[in-house]
Every structure is written in C-alpha cells, then in structure tokens.
C-alpha cells in the first residue's frame, strides 16, 4: 500500500468526495436528459486543451479546463442555433477536439508522450491541489443550491421538455445551466479522475441511483452518496493496488452499477410482472 503525507491524503480525500458529489449531481441531469455523451465530449475537449497548453508552453491544466468549459458552454447554443439534436453536436465537437489534440501534439515535438499530457488523461492523486479542492467545494455548493432553488423546474424539465416549456418555464436557460454546470464538474474533476475517465463518474453513480428509486427526490440524495462512496472506495483501492486513481474510481463505480442493474427492484418487478 502506498503511504501518503497527511496533507496530501486530506487534499486527495476531499477532492475525491467533492468530485464524486458534483459529478454525480450533474449525472442525474445528464442521464435523464439522454446527454450521456456530453462527458465523453468534454473529456476529449480537455485533452485537446492540455495539448494546446503544451504547445504554447503554459500549464496544461488551465487550458484543459478552458477547452472543456468552452465546449460545455457552446454545446447548447450550437445545438439550439443549428436546430440539431444535442447528441449530434456532441459527436461533431468530439471529433473536432480529437483532431485539434492531434494537431497540437504534432506541433509540440517531443511532448506527445510526456507525462503531463498523459496524467490529464487518466488522473493523479498528486495533481490535486488546495485550489482544486476550493473550486470543487464552490461548485458543489452552487450545484446543491441549483437543485434546491429550482427543484420544481428541474422536475418539469426532466419529465418532459416540451411540457415544461408549455407550462411557462424557460427551458432554454435551464438546459444551458445544466450543460454549463456539467462542464464545470468535468473540468474541476479532470486532475483527479482524468479526462478519458471522468465521464464515467458522471454517468455511473446516477445510473446506479436510477436503478433503485421511483422518487426523484431519493435519486437526488442517493446519486451523490453513491458518487462519493465510489470515489472514496476507488481512492482506497488505488492506494492498495497502486493503480491510477481515475481507473480505480471507474472500476469501482462500474462494478456498483453492474451489481445494481442485476439486483434492481425496478427491473425485477417489471420482469416478474411481464411473466405474470
């Protein structure tokens, strides 16, 4: 087992808890709105951003966050403007970001395989700083406030977008807010979980919660709980095995999801009902 200095242990633990909290809250929206590919797109945008940072010889992490956040902010307006499904725009942005990443790396001789770029791809405990914890704390507070203050609008939107609009809710603003907050959750969790894997932290805990509960309020409580538990378990698993923390968190959360699908009372009841 890896032994860490106490300060680093506290920072990494707090980072894990807050990344699990913010990503899984975003996941509740993303999964229900069928925007699962958004995390995938943003994580690759972050990769492109990191490559751009290497090219212009600045810290690749802020540029990774900038690219991921910009992609998040642009997704909804582009989809809205082009009258395209968000998933189509995500597909376009995803390929564009990968292309940009390859060009940036190609223009940075000797850096393509560097540890800095690769660490952003799969995350590292050692990369998490006090500032990251502070940003994640603020983001978690904002996300919790968003859920509490706009709970009735969120339910209306997640139940049916057209009906929500028909009852006088400005669905465009709420969709924009959800995409933006998801982008921030991805960006702030990049250092810990890694760009290639962070989307799993968005999708897995929320999908697990959806397997068990019929009441949206319970999903809003249990998805973050599962997210935090997955992150902490993944963190311990990473220390025990010396696996990368991002991969460890994803393996734990995927296992939890697989078990939850197998034992889901929702599915069991439906399948027994269908045979009745």
């Amino acid at each position: 087992m890896i032994s860490l200095p106490f300060a680093l242990l506290v920072t990494a633990t707090l980072g894990s808890v807050l990344a699990g909290l913010s990503c899984s809250i975003a996941g509740v929206f993303v999964v229900r709105l069928n925007m699962a590919s958004i995390g995938f797109c943003m994580s690759h945008a972050a990769f492109a951003g990191a490559a751009f940072g290497l090219l212009v010889e600045v810290d690749p992490l802020p540029t990774a966050m900038l690219f991921a956040t910009l992609t998040a902010v642009l997704l909804a307006p582009v989809a809205n403007r082009a009258k395209l499904n968000t998933d189509v725009v995500i597909g376009i942005m995803f390929s564009l970001m990968i292309a940009l990443a390859f060009i940036f790396l190609n223009l940075s001789p000797g850096e393509a395989a560097s540890g800095t770029a690769l660490r952003i791809l799969w995350g590292s405990i050692f990369a998490v700083s006090e500032y990251d914890v502070l940003f994640l704390s603020l983001l978690s507070l904002v996300m919790l406030a968003f859920v509490v203050l706009f709970y009735k609008e969120i339910i209306a939107l997640l139940f049916n977008k057209k009906l929500a609009q028909a009852s006088g809710i400005n669905t465009y603003v709420f969709m924009l807010a959800i995409v933006f907050l998801t982008g921030l959750a991805v960006s702030f969790s990049l250092k810990l979980v890694g760009g290639l894997l962070v989307y799993a932290l968005i999708i897995n805990p929320a999908s697990t919660a959806y397997q068990f509960f019929w009441d949206f309020k319970k999903i809003m409580i249990f998805a973050p709980t599962i997210g935090v538990a997955s992150c902490l378990s993944g963190f311990v698993f990473s220390l025990e095995t010396d696996f990368p923390i991002g991969a460890s968190i994803v393996i734990v959360s995927a296992l939890v999801l697989a078990v939850s699908i197998a034992v889901s009372p929702k599915r069991r009841r439906r399948s027994s009902a269908s045979f009745a």
Binding site: R32, L149, F150, K152, E153, I155, A156, L158, F159, N160, K162, L163, A164, A166, S167, G168, I169, Y210, F213, W214, D215, F216, I219, K266, R267, R270
Partner: peptide, 29 residues
C-alpha cells in the same frame, strides 16, 4: 401533449408530475 411513450423506469411520482404543471405560474425561486 399527444400521448408520448412514458419511460417505465421514470422516477417521478404522480403528484410531482401534476405539480410540475404549476411550476411556471408559481414562478422562479
């Protein structure tokens, strides 16, 4: 709305769906 296919795993209780009809008129915050 014209009857749309409801997701059988939909996590919303009837009372919350009915309340969502009032969300716009109750107003923000």
């Amino acid at each position: 709305i014209q009857n749309f296919e409801i997701d059988p795993l939909s996590p919303f209780l009837c009372r919350n769906v009915v309340m969502s009809g009032r969300a716009g008129m109750i107003g923000l915050l």
